[in-house]
Structure formats: C-alpha cells, structure tokens
C-alpha cells in the first residue's frame, strides 16, 4: 500500500506565544517547530499500517518554509517513513489549510497514494479544513474525525469509526481516500538514535509551490489577558464549599443551568 502522510511543523507545546511586531501573526522568531500532536499520531498510524500490510511504503509530505518543514520531514523519516517531499511555500500558505492543500495537490498527482493521512487539525491554527480540501482537489472521498482505522485486505477496503455529534459512525471505504485522524488512539513511537542519524542523510525531494495569494489574510494575533488565577473558595465543610460555588456560578458567573 502506498501511504502518504501530511505533516505540518508547529511550535512546540511549551512555546511562549507572542505577536510579531506588526501584530498580525504569531512570531516565529526563536520558536522551535516540531512534529507534534495529531501529526505524531498520523505518522504512527501510517507506520502501523505499513507494518500490517506487506510491501507498503510511507511517504511524508510537508508544505511550508525552510528549515522547519525539512526538520519535521527528517523527524518523520527518523520514525520510519520511507521517503519525503517538501513543498517549498510561505508560512502563510502553510497556515491556510485550503492554500496548503492547493500547494500540495499537484505534488501528490505524481506520487502513488492509496491512502492520504493527515491529523484532524494542526496544533497552531486548528482549522481542520486541509484534508477535506485536499480530498476535493484530488477527486477522492475524505473523512475527518476518524478513529480505529483498519485495513481489510480481503475486501481491499478500510474500516473505521467517526465520532460525530450524531453518534459513533462505522464506515467502509475503498481506496484511494483521504483520512484525517481524530486523536491518538495509538501511542506514537519515539525515534531511535541510529534512525535520527540516518534521517539526517536521507534525501528530501523539494518541489516549489506555485505562488498563491491566500484569500485568508492575517490581520491580528492577540494573547488573552493573563488569567488572574482562580478565586479560591474557603470553607469549613464540603456542604459550605458546594453552596458557595453554586451561588457564585448563579450570581457572579451566571452560568448555572
């Protein structure tokens, strides 16, 4: 099976966010970009499928600027992906899921793909539109919020679940398809040291993205005012604590049902 896994470098979780000088975006200066969150899970999912289905290959792709895109692709290779393609594009292109899908789709046309995997959303802008847009551009079905992805070799189809507001749906889909994974129902592996060394020497195919002015323009990036910390409820008995809390929720926060 030919599996393509789409990843996006995002600031590591501990990053202290701050706006750029012009206040429009999150400042990338000094920020460490990593393979994280949903993307770690989708790489893991790709590798699990590769291990389960004989003669499978996993190809990692990323859209965005250097060096962060190359770094996450090397991280994916260190985890066990077989090859990688970097679509060289601006951060603004990468940040808009639709623009990223448009930049990537032509590159995928030249890559065999039975399954295109992505995370439900990137950990920075959390748009979650990339996979569906890519499905449309490739002319194949896409599914978001997927868990329990399995391959049925006899029927040559995937089975999976989707957790939606209407209940947990069970699906069957032939290939090719685009799947965006809901969450880590797997336990992402850690790259081993020899693989890290090997990944540094792995070739990464570079493709230039067609310049595309995104229709979604960043105007302002703001941090919420720091929370002042919780109002701590003093009490002598648990009952008193409960009464005080319910009163505050009713009268002060006005969120009591």
């Amino acid at each position: 099976m030919e599996i393509v896994v789409c990843i996006k470098p995002v600031p590591e979780a501990e990053t202290r966010l701050r706006p750029t000088a012009d206040g429009t975006r999150a400042d990338p200066d000094g920020v460490k970009f990593v393979l994280a969150g949903y993307d770690e899970s989708s790489v893991e999912q790709a590798l699990l499928l590769k291990e389960a289905v004989p003669a499978s290959k996993v190809h990692a792709v990323a859209v965005g600027p250097a060096p962060r895109s190359e770094e996450v692709l090397r991280a994916a290779i260190a985890l066990g992906c077989d090859s990688a393609t970097w679509v060289d594009a601006t951060a603004d292109t990468a940040d808009d899921g639709l623009s990223a899908a448009r930049a990537l789709a032509p590159a995928l046309a030249g890559l065999p793909h039975d399954l295109v995997l992505a995370g439900k959303q990137a950990g920075d802008r959390e748009s979650g539109v990339f996979a569906a847009a890519l499905g449309e551009l490739l002319g194949v079905p896409d599914f978001g919020f997927v868990t329990d992805l399995r391959w049925e070799p006899a029927a040559a189809r995937f089975t999976f679940r989707r957790a939606t507001e209407g209940g947990v749906e069970r699906w069957e889909s032939p290939v090719p398809c685009v799947i965006a994974l809901q969450q880590a129902w797997n336990d992402p592996r850690t790259a081993k040291l020899p693989m890290i060394l090997k990944s540094r020497k792995a070739p990464i195919a570079k493709v230039a993205a067609a310049p595309a002015a995104g229709p979604s323009i960043p105007v302002k990036f703001e941090l919420p005012p720091p929370r002042s910390g919780a109002k701590m409820i003093e009490y002598k008995t648990p009952e008193e604590a409960a009464q005080t809390l319910v009163r505050l929720l009713k009268e002060e926060a006005k969120v009591f049902p």
Binding site: A78, T190, A191, L193, L197, S199, R200
Partner: peptide, 15 residues
C-alpha cells in the same frame, strides 16, 4: 547542528 539538536531532544524527552 540540527543533528545535534535532534540527539539532544531525544535524550531530553527520554530523561
């Protein structure tokens, strides 16, 4: 180097 940073990150995460 990026390689050294990756090695350090691996050890850091493990630690």
């Amino acid at each position: 180097t990026p390689e050294q940073e990756s090695l350090r990150d691996l050890a850091r995460k493990f630690a």
